[in-house]
């Protein structure tokens, strides 16, 4: 009996329609693009979160060498700045990076010559905070105690980065939405074409007592089959493309990019894309058939 159920042919010969193959391939393409856009959105929001965690609780003080100017030597100014910082409310620790550590930090930009003692290198002080810091007041005190000092609270560029990440995230979700919209339109047109091509069969089914829901179920089964097949192909292509990109990003040395990776749950979310596409196609097919048939006499 199960065999009969499985082998039961559709009352409408939809499989031979020219639009059928087209629907499967267009779904493959759309699921591919949607999965990539979604993966992009997830990577970007992960990155933004890491920036927040890594930098939000810190300040950096930079003290310029100022050669030739009538000021105290660099080391003395660093000590003065440390004294001011350690006395400031909200500061947990303040540590000066030695010349070697600073050079290491700058090496990606300056190359191996960063360690050259002849280069006038600034000194950096890494400050960890554990409460609100009066940034403008602290800046003034630092400048008078250690001329050439600048305070960077990361807030400005962190805010920029956050805004940028938010924009990328929104754009990616917008792309997913647009792809969904295009998919809905594709299904609407394909189903309308099917209804027109098989007008006589639909009419006959109606005369034999078929309800509009009965007719729409035929279309639903048909589009779900096609979109699932197309969607799986699209998903496989997207997973292959993503795996390749993520691997390549990890092989980049001295990468400016933070680690790019997707968590298992994020891969699972991508696997839901074809299912969501099939569900959307099914609801669209039902809605289209019912609306079209309702307008018949």
């Amino acid at each position: 009996m199960a065999l009969f159920l499985l082998g039961r042919p559709s009352d409408l010969p939809l499989a031979k329609d020219p639009s059928s193959r087209f629907l499967a391939w267009i779904t493959a393409l759309m699921v591919f693009l949607a999965a990539l856009a979604l993966a992009g959105a997830m990577v970007v929001s992960d990155m933004a979160r890491r920036w927040d965690n890594g930098l939000a609780g810190g300040l950096t003080v930079q003290i310029a060498p100022l050669p030739g100017a009538p000021v105290a030597p660099l080391d003395e100014r660093v000590e003065a700045a440390l004294t001011v910082l350690r006395a400031a409310p909200g500061v947990r620790t303040a540590t000066a990076l030695d010349a070697a550590a600073t050079a290491r930090l700058l090496e990606p930009w300056l190359g191996p010559e960063a360690g050259d003692p002849l280069l006038p290198m600034p000194r950096l002080i890494d400050v960890a905070t554990d409460g609100p810091v009066d940034v403008p007041g602290l800046t003034l005190r630092l400048k008078s105690a250690a001329p050439g000092a600048t305070l960077d609270d990361h807030a400005v560029w962190l805010a920029d980065l956050r805004a940028f990440a938010g924009a990328v995230h929104l754009a990616a979700l917008g792309v997913v939405g647009l792809i969904g919209g295009a998919g809905v339109m594709t299904v609407v047109f394909s189903v309308r074409a099917g209804l027109a091509i098989h007008r006589h069969v639909v009419e006959l089914l109606h005369l034999m007592g078929a309800t509009d829901r009965y007719v729409s179920r035929q279309f639903e089964t048909h589009v779900v089959g096609l979109t699932l097949r197309g969607g799986l192909i699209g998903l496989l292509l997207a997973v292959a493309a993503l795996a390749g990109t993520l691997r390549a990003s990890q092989e980049l040395r001295a990468s400016l990019l933070p680690d790019l990776a997707l968590a298992p749950w994020q891969w699972a979310a991508l696997a839901l894309v074809p299912l969501a596409a099939a569900l959307l196609a099914r609801m669209t097919a039902r809605w289209t058939v019912l609306r079209t048939l309702e307008s018949l006499p």
Binding site: M1, F4, L5, R8, D11, M208, G209, A210, Y214
Partner: peptide, 11 residues
């Protein structure tokens, strides 16, 4: 067809 439309058991 008429039986399936009426939801009769397949067997």
């Amino acid at each position: 067809l008429p039986l399936r439309m009426g939801g009769a058991p397949e067997a």
